[in-house]
Design a protein around this nucleic acid. Structure first.
Lengths: 205, 205, 205, 205
DNA sequence: GATGAATGAGATTTCATTCAT
DNA sequence: AATGAATGAAATCTCATTCAT
């Protein structure tokens, strides 16, 4: 292992704290994770967490949410339509949903916590997520409009259509998170595909 | 006030415990509600809760969920299609969703807790809720089939159509519960109506 | 040992907490006394203190001060001049100062704490003590006036004279408390007597 | 600003530490002041305090007390009677008390701390203060003797008289420090003057 | 001279639960 | 049926101090 400068080591410790906290919060919940569990896992003293996050447990959670959110925003904004413009409609939609899904699954644990303990944190995170979803709706509506221009789907309220599509995905995701499902089928991965095909078929008629 | 028999008194205390617990859990969360807050509000000693619910805090929460769930099941099962059979399609669907909504809003707080602390309680409740939703999907699909038979909507995969409809509602409800919304519009009450109309219009084409 | 009813035992525990806290605070200071030291000394669990004093360490200190103060007020008010009316002046004054001294020495430890940590507690206690001292000044002035009427001392501003007397005592007491003395003589007990005699001699001239 | 040599810089840092510590101790108490508050205020690292004061927090407090005390001793010793020898008695006494008062008020905060935490530090400081006061008593007694020789006051035990005078001042000062006053009058500044006049009048009779 | 990462003992407090009465 | 005294593990957080750099 390379010799690390003090600054590098400090930043590494901070990072370890964040990662460990995220994992433990995911595994045992925010309330279920004692601060000690975090510090002990990185084999440091009890106080180290307060050295990097003077606000304690709450602050480390806040930082986790903020960082995850910022990453998500950046990724979704980069989801340019160019890469999907030439794909068949259903494939394009699946790519979009898949990409969104990926982003959420990426930090599914964090989402889970945000949902579960959502009163703990100032609702800022939730609000930002709302805005993000709204923007996404409009972006998809725009995409559908272009497909209509190409004659692939009929004319309709494209914003509503986009919402319909996102509903399917969101309901599916929320269900996974909270453990209540509409579909008790074993093959949950195919669910989205099925529903997208069905929806597109309605749009084409 | 009439003198209560011992049995009635006991039962009254048990009931008071349940109601008080539900209110406090809703207000301050399950973790945020000390057992003492419950017993003190009904002006009884600390131990009384364990007399009626030997399993303690967890048990009282379980009972609350179970009772609420049983009530919900009963109500939804009574949601006979007969009463809506003669209504226009979009009205009938709105009645169905409205009824489901009503049932959930009825104990929105409990739902919130079920979502938030869903790993605390054995997932039995969540599973039952899943089954309930699946049954509901089939029931709606059946209803749509009948409407198709009447020539009101075209032929399609009615199960998928029912899922699509429920997705809209579920996404909406979950969003309310966790505070993340796709629509930041001020008039949220009209949202469901709009989306149902849109969906029905697709089914009719 | 007689069998105690539950209520008696509870009250005994509360009392034990107060006494133990007082002793430990006196010995090691308020800050220097962990709550655990108190509960361990009475061989009870950590939480018992919070059962009787929900406000914790601060509350137990407050209660100690309040109770001590109430006792002191009561005693000083009962210090009727009747019992000293017939004594020679210097003896009467020594009785008064001795009585006051006794009252303070009674809870010298508490006084020490009140002085030392006086910013901790709302200044109510200190204010009340001030009022008490002022009243005492007037009471002594009144007594001196009567002695003047009897021709034992000359005419003068009796309030000032009373202050002068109390100054001697207070300075002496404060000195004992904080450990700074004007007199480094070994026989501190004779100090007050000497000074009273000196002062009276001035009044008589 | 002139470039400071290393020695000057070091000494400046040490001085900054002392001044900052004194202010913070005064403001928040010894226990209430974390070492970090001091080092952060002078924008240095955590360890710097231990560089200049290896004994840590305790040592810096000790040094503060010692320096303040040395300054006080020096000043009081310079309080030569020559400057007051020609003044009227009451004015001369007021000058003496005023000078002593000034010296104490100068570092009232430090006095306050010395009183509050007097068991923390070895009692050396308190003892020295005691000796200082005793010497002062004798010095005043000597002064009174000279005034008696001039026929301004009658013969009496001048040591006792000096004690009586200092009592008035000490009680007043202590009262200010701990917040317990004999006089609740609004004009506290006149208190000393009144009492001195009263005492002198007794000496003259 | 100076830094600040790291320590870890220890402090206060909470609270679900038990059980003798 | 009811009480509430007592428990004690556990949780969060503070802070004087050390020491490698």
């Amino acid at each position: 292992m390379a010799q690390l400068s003090r600054k590098e080591q400090a930043s590494a410790t901070r990072e370890k704290l964040l990662i460990t906290a995220k994992n433990l919060f995911a595994e045992m919940g925010y309330h279920g994770t004692p601060v000690r569990a975090i510090t002990r896992q990185i084999q440091k003293g009890d106080g180290i967490l307060y050295h990097y996050f003077p606000g304690g447990k709450q602050e480390i959670m806040s930082v986790l949410l903020r960082e995850s959110f910022e990453h998500r925003v950046q990724e979704i904004k980069q989801l340019t339509n160019e890469t999907i413009e030439h794909l068949p409609l259903r494939d394009a939609l699946l790519v979009i949903l898949g990409k969104i899904n990926e982003l959420f699954l990426d930090d599914l644990d964090l989402m889970r916590i945000l949902f579960r303990e959502n009163e703990l944190f100032d609702l800022e995170e939730a609000k930002q997520l709302s805005v993000l979803m709204s923007e996404q709706v409009e972006s998809i509506a725009e995409f559908l409009r272009r497909r209509h221009a190409r004659g692939e789907i009929r004319f309709m309220n494209f914003t509503f259509a986009a919402r319909q599509l996102l509903s399917i995905w969101m309901q599916h995701s929320f269900s996974c998170i909270v453990g209540i499902k509409v579909v008790t089928a074993p093959d949950v991965s195919a669910y989205l595909e099925e529903m997208v095909d069905f929806t597109v078929s309605l749009w084409q008629a």
